[in-house]
Design a protein around this nucleic acid. Structure first.
Lengths: 275, 275
DNA sequence: GGAGCGCTGTATCGTATGTTACGTATTTTG
DNA sequence: CAAAATACGTAACATACGATACAGCGCTCC
């Protein structure tokens, strides 16, 4: 079976006329970036004319050049999302049904943090730690436990931390307490819940600063969010994984705690003495 | 010094207006492929208009959109040639406050799974999937969200899954429902809670099979447990990490679901048709 | 509460891009 | 060696893409 375009090319390169073969060779040599450029650039690099490039992609089975480029991009996307380890270690030690799940999860975490800058996290931490306002947390069907987990920790190191539980009508009533100085942390991954989106929109209209934990496809709530944390969720399972978001949450919890300690918060000292 | 575009974005994302920030977030979330598509596609993905995208790239210092795309392609080319240097955040490796936390968490997971045999997991899966009995889940102060998370998933693929919430007195009343055929999943890490230990002991006396998620120092509940999963929890933070246990929980959820599918469970088919 | 500023989207424009038609060159085959 | 078929490039075309002008709106700051 032919899976990649590169494979497809080397499979058919023998049957191609000279000009198209030059195109194929240039593409393989600079795979796949030349194919993402314009036809003119591609043709110049290969030393052939534009129509030759188009005939080349047509021979590969694509209807037109944009379709060919989309295929290359999809391939790249798959490659970038599952880092090299997967292709380099096809069968990692242990090999049971466990390992692929673990490997994918570890990849997800690395990838999630790779897309997360220190500065972004620092901004969120500053907002959570520095502020006099209140912090509200809420999650979706499967992610609400993450909101609970984070709330359980944050509520210890600072006052005015509230987890919004129960039915939608109950949250809405809490909106009355929320204002510009407050922060709303929302967890929402596919399939995104309408109720959460509506809630986020209303909170946003009230000036609440929203921190969104979502997946890489971004919940519609991203429209209203001041900060967006996009975690990878794909694993070889019937379910999506929230593990990467969980680790980000733990990282934030730790950073906020450290920040408050650094600020010499009286509360922390009081906590120590209570133990 | 700013070397990558991703870094450039996270550096300036704070100074951007809302619309352009949405553009920045979608680009970072799907870095960098969205940026290689057309302005129209990019704008649609970000939920803003085309000019906003163009203003966004202009703010990053590019003269026009093609120049921006070329820069992304150059960056991609460098990444593809040396897979080792795949660093979107050059600041994180070693440097920032983020990385040690992530590294420790990844180590914890590898270590946790290293001490976890496939057979042990398979036994637990078999017990959870094969049985006609009920499944109860409960957790401690910080781990109860993990119990909730697991319950939320298991309750979908099989009936008779109950999360025990609220106060101790409420759990005790549920003991009347538990018998030999039932399973009790308990999450308990330091500092172990007396109330959970007492509850586990009573349940054990009633013949309930206990699956314990705990840390490497083992909760006293391990005495009564049929299966013990010991996860690593140490991280450079004021708090312990439950991330490793979380991943084990997700692994179990996935395995149970797969097992039930393999068993041709009618419930799974019914679920599919309900969607 | 009003005036000014800045941000965003709609609509329009110019242009670069992919596409196609056609003529020439090159190879292949009887 | 001749004739036909295939391959290739030049040039004209149409589409769709990026760019821009402008108006509406919300926001902030007097």
């Amino acid at each position: 079976m032919i899976s990649s375009i590169g494979e497809l090319i080397s499979d058919r390169i023998g049957t191609m006329p000279a000009g198209e073969r030059r195109a194929a060779q240039t593409l393989i040599a600079n795979y796949p970036l030349i194919g993402l450029k314009t036809v003119a650039e591609f043709s110049a690099a290969a030393g052939v004319s534009s129509p030759t490039i188009l005939r080349f992609v047509a021979r590969l089975g694509f209807q037109n050049y944009p379709e060919f480029q989309s295929a290359l991009q999809d391939e790249l996307a798959a490659q970038l999302q599952s880092p090299a380890s997967r292709t380099l270690n096809p069968s990692s030690p242990g090999g049971g049904a466990v390992s692929p799940m673990l490997e994918a999860t570890l990849d997800n975490m690395r990838e999630t943090f790779r897309h997360l800058s220190d500065k972004q996290l620092a901004d969120i931490v500053a907002k959570l730690a520095d502020r006099r306002g209140k912090t509200f947390l809420i999650g979706g069907r499967f992610t609400d436990p993450l909101a609970r987990y984070m709330a359980a920790h944050l509520a210890i190191v600072q006052p005015n931390v509230f987890h919004l539980a129960g039915q939608e009508s109950i949250w809405r009533d809490r909106l009355i307490d929320m204002g510009k100085r407050d922060v709303l942390i929302i967890f929402d991954i596919r399939r995104y819940q309408d109720s959460l989106v509506r809630f986020a929109e209303t909170a946003h209209q009230r000036g609440v600063q929203i921190v969104l934990f979502t997946d890489q496809w971004l919940s519609p709530i991203a429209r209203f969010a001041r900060h967006v944390i996009a975690g990878r969720t794909a694993v070889p399972s019937a379910w999506d994984s929230s593990a990467a978001l969980f680790v980000v949450a733990e990282t934030l919890i730790g950073a906020v705690t450290r920040q408050l300690e650094a600020d010499g918060a009286k509360r922390i000292r009081e906590l120590e003495s209570l133990r």
